[in-house]
Every structure is written in structure tokens, then in C-alpha cells.
């Protein structure tokens, strides 16, 4: 335990301020709690590895032009079709002579866009449906859960395929398709957690204070469900990335020429024996990104574990 100590200048170091067992303000308490989580996450090597991979992907996507060294991902150079990896083309070129390294780097953008958009859609829907069903119970619960069951009953990729082909090809529709198929497990998870939480004394206490149902759900139940939903989401990310790649592979995702890992694998499929790099490199990118999210999810689960608190 670090003991808060004033340094000679009289200013307390940031570290000690964060480790203070008796915070002096709301902000300090919040940041100190966050800090404990970060420390716990970083002291777990596997989770830290996952975090590093995810951060690296975010960085690469955000600064794609910089990481691609100005090489265009879509410029064709038919004279150098299917060039093997070399100092000029690190990961070689594809069947249209485009630089695979640059395409992989830019492909991270598409993948991240999908990841972010899906999360933004799935988490609120799952939480709303799940907490409402779990807290209100009765007929609301029955109706909401039957709807959830219907969505759960379809195989994920097939439902996404059906949606994507009905809505038309394109990134936006791919995201909607994935999100529509991904929310039911979150609703189930949130419902299960809510049922336990709703029985607890601290919820009874706010009921007795006269809090309205939306207020109880939003301010007291959702924050507790959020951690397991986030863990589940990070663990699911691998699946979402793969589904997105699958849609791309089938030509239902991002449209050419914008690089997308799944579509890249698809285009390199016929060449796998002679020009292995065309399909392998984006495949590896999918693998690393999925693994990164999975490790992070595992680590977050440990951090959020109430027993560790």
C-alpha cells in the first residue's frame, strides 16, 4: 500500500493522490477507483498484452496514412501484380498490384468502424431490453424475452447474411445486420444480472426513497450490469470481427476498392498456394485483432470481479 506522503515541495505526488485511502473529493474518488482498475489490468500480463494489441490497432487505424508511409491502399500498379514480400512491398502486392501492407493498415479502419458501430448499437439495446425485462418482470419480461429468443434462435451469420442481402451490400448495412443479430445475448445477460440486483437491499433502499423506475434502472442497475456487458462485448469482438470479415468475404460488407480484411482474404483465396501472402496477411490481421480483444476481455473480467475489489 502506498502511503500518501508530501514530497519536499509540499505537493503530493499524483500517484500518492490516486492511492489515497481517504479521497477528498468526488473526482479524486472516481479517478482513484479508475486507477485501481488500470493498475489491476496492467499487472496482469495477458490482459496487458490484449490491451496493448487493441491500443495498437486503434493507433494504426487513427494514423493510417502515417503508418502506411503515404502508400495508397487503392492505387493499382498492374506491372507489379502479385509481387512477393520485398523491401519495397513489405507484405507484397495483390492481384491488382496494390500494396498489401498499406491495405492491411487501412483495413484496420474498416474493422474498427464496424467494432465501434456495433458496440454503440448493441450495448444500449441489450441493456434496455435486459434491465427492463429483469426489473419489471411479469408480462413485460415474457414479451421481451420471447422476442429475444426469436433472434437467438437463428444462426448468427445466416441471419446477418439475410439482413445484409435484404438491406443491400455496404458497410452500414453490414453493421446493422451484425448488430441486429448480436444484441440478444446481451439482453439475456443484463436480465440475469438485473434479477439478482433487483432483489438486493441497496435497490430496496432507493425504492424506499421514492426513486422512479427509470431512475433506478439508469442510475443504479445499469452501472452494475455494464461491467459484465463490457467484458462480454470484448470477448464477442472476435466473433464480430469474424462475422464482418465473413460478410466482406462474401461481398456483402465494405465495397471495393476500400480495403477490408475479410474481402482481402476472399480475393486471395484462389491464390493461396502460389501467392500465399495475399490471403495470409489479412487473415493474420483478423487473428491478431480477435486475439487482442479476447485477451483484453479476459483481463477485464478479472478486474471487474467483485471478489477482487
Amino acid at each position: 500500500m502506498t502511503i500518501a506522503s508530501a514530497d519536499p515541495g509540499g505537493k503530493i505526488s499524483l500517484r500518492a493522490w490516486l492511492a489515497d485511502e481517504t479521497p477528498k473529493s468526488r473526482t479524486q474518488a472516481f479517478l482513484a477507483n479508475l486507477w485501481r482498475g488500470v493498475v489491476a489490468l496492467c499487472s496482469n500480463p495477458v490482459a496487458f498484452g490484449g490491451l496493448a494489441v487493441v491500443l495498437a490497432i486503434v493507433l494504426v487505424a487513427a494514423l493510417a496514412p502515417l503508418f502506411a508511409f503515404g502508400i495508397s491502399p487503392i492505387e493499382q500498379d498492374l506491372a507489379h501484380r502479385l509481387a512477393p514480400p520485398s523491401p519495397t512491398h513489405w507484405f507484397g502486392t495483390d492481384e491488382l498490384g496494390r500494396d498489401i501492407y498499406a491495405r492491411t493498415v487501412y483495413g484496420a479502419r474498416v474493422t474498427l468502424t464496424i467494432v465501434v458501430l456495433v458496440s454503440v448499437i448493441v450495448v444500449p439495446i441489450g441493456l434496455t431490453v435486459g434491465t427492463a425485462a429483469g426489473y419489471l418482470g411479469g408480462i413485460v419480461d415474457t414479451v421481451l424475452m420471447r422476442i429475444t429468443d426469436i433472434f437467438l434462435a437463428f444462426p448468427r451469420l445466416i441471419l446477418a447474411l439475410a439482413f445484409a442481402s435484404a438491406l443491400g451490400a455496404g458497410l452500414r448495412n453490414a453493421v446493422i445486420a451484425i448488430a441486429l443479430t448480436a444484441w440478444p445475448p446481451y439482453a439475456r445477460l443484463a436480465r440475469a444480472e438485473t434479477i439478482t440486483i433487483a432483489r438486493s437491499d441497496y435497490i430496496a433502499a432507493v425504492v424506499l426513497q421514492g426513486a422512479s423506475t427509470p431512475r433506478i434502472l439508469l442510475r443504479h442497475v445499469v452501472p452494475l450490469c455494464l461491467s459484465s456487458v463490457i467484458v462480454r462485448l470484448t470477448l464477442d469482438m472476435a466473433g464480430i470481427i469474424l462475422t464482418a470479415a465473413g460478410l466482406g468475404f462474401l461481398g456483402l460488407g465494405q465495397q471495393p476498392p476500400t480495403p477490408e480484411w475479410g474481402a482481402m482474404v476472399s480475393s486471395g483465396r484462389d491464390l493461396i498456394l502460389d501467392q500465399w501472402w495475399v490471403a495470409t496477411i489479412p487473415g493474420l490481421a483478423i487473428f491478431v485483432a480477435s486475439l487482442g480483444f479476447n485477451l483484453l476481455g479476459d483481463g477485464l473480467r478479472d478486474v471487474f470481479d467483485p471478489k477482487a475489489a
Binding site: 468526488r26 437491499d201 441497496y202 430496496a204 426513497q209
Partner: peptide, 20 residues
């Protein structure tokens, strides 16, 4: 509601774990 308040048995379960 305001007229009446409650103190629960288990002090470990009656405070919201994520609130100061």
C-alpha cells in the same frame, strides 16, 4: 415514501457497491 425509512440487516449488501 419519505415518511418511512429502512435500515437493513447486512451492511455489506445494503450499500451500492459502485457508489461512494
Amino acid at each position: 415514501r419519505r415518511l418511512l425509512q429502512f435500515v437493513f440487516q447486512d451492511p455489506y449488501a445494503s450499500l451500492h457497491p459502485r457508489q461512494t
